[in-house]
């Protein structure tokens, strides 16, 4: 066993072949996701979230670098992961019941029929209904039933809740988190709606322009930042610290900083919300990246054999 769910080392993916200039969906992407985390992957549209998840699901081969999942190459861990792509691919000609049967047939020995059935029946879905006749939210429910029924050790969900109404979202998220807590499942959920998943997650990866801009336990990330408010020249007072963003507000100047020591007197400091941190980083694309120690690739463990024994 390994205590690392996903580890990416200098992961890069370029679409469209080397002849096309640019085209990097991911570039120099390195992080470590500890097992049993509930991780939110956030970032604007086109940041590389889906590409990152597809690599972890073993559907894409990196152009450069490596990605290791549950201590092994993604192709060796299919049984232990579940993946729900953003468009919730399902076979339209199957019924709901047949789709769950597919989960049983393709995952013998792992399939939890009663869990999958419960998720479907909680949504008042007719098992005889064809997938093509379902609404987007109902399809999401079936896709999640298929993923959770597999009892994965790592659950990869790409924009899982986008099609759901608030009630269904709350109820499905509750089921999801309860199952994850019970089984010790690592959950990775991507979203471009900031803060949508924040309350459910304890780990965060902020992806921007194909790179990890912030990575770590949410508590650690919040603790690493301070919201300071005060009057006076910004540069002098905040010189020792890393200033992510500063704005003029009614009372003077508000800045989000990563303190490198005590903040100069005369400045009010407050703990920022996660949303403050995310918005500040999104508005300041040039801010330096931050990976907390728990999210950092451990030296030597990017090697696959080391990760297996570790």
């Amino acid at each position: 066993m390994t205590d690392t769910a996903i580890e990416a080392a200098a992961l890069g993916k370029r679409f469209g072949g080397p002849s096309r200039s640019g085209g990097w969906a991911l570039r120099d992407c390195s992080f470590r996701l500890p097992a049993a985390s509930i991780c939110a992957v956030v970032g604007p549209n086109g940041a590389g979230k889906s590409t990152l998840l597809a690599h972890a699901a073993g559907l894409l081969e990196p152009t450069e670098g490596t990605v290791t999942v549950l201590g092994a190459h993604p192709s060796a861990t299919r049984e232990r992961i579940a993946y729900v792509a953003q468009d919730k691919p399902l076979y339209p000609q199957l019924t709901v019941a047949e789709t769950l049967r597919l989960g049983l047939e393709l995952n013998p020995g792992r399939w939890d029929a009663s869990l999958a059935e419960r998720i479907v029946t909680d949504g008042d879905l007719d098992p005889r209904a064809r997938i093509r006749a379902l609404s987007g939210g109902q399809r999401t429910r079936v896709a999640l039933a298929l993923a959770l029924g597999k009892r994965p050790e790592l659950l990869l969900l790409d924009e899982p809740m986008a099609d759901l109404d608030p009630l269904a979202r709350h109820q499905l998220m509750g089921t999801l988190l309860a199952e994850a807590a019970e089984q010790g499942t690592t959950v990775v959920m991507s979203s471009h709606i900031l803060g949508e998943l924040a309350h459910a997650c304890d780990f965060l990866l902020l992806v921007g322009e194909g790179r990890i801009r912030l990575g770590g336990a949410i508590d650690d990330l919040v603790a690493a930042h301070r919201l300071v408010t005060g009057r006076g020249p910004l540069t002098d007072a905040l010189a020792p610290h890393t200033v992510i963003e500063s704005r003029a507000t009614g009372r003077g100047l508000t800045a989000l900083i990563r303190p490198a020591g005590p903040v100069a007197p005369g400045w009010e400091t407050a703990e920022p919300s996660l949303e403050d941190i995310l918005l500040a980083h999104l508005r300041s694309p040039d801010a330096p990246a931050l990976l907390t120690p728990s999210a950092s690739v451990r030296s030597g463990s990017s090697d696959m054999s080391a990760a297996v024994t570790g």
């Binding site: 192709s75 299919r78 992961i81 393709l106 995952n107």
Partner: peptide
């Protein structure tokens, strides 16, 4: 074309 391969290829069967 329809993307269902991403469903098929992420089950236990390779």
């Amino acid at each position: 074309e329809s993307g269902t391969y991403r469903l098929a290829w992420t089950q236990s069967a390779s």
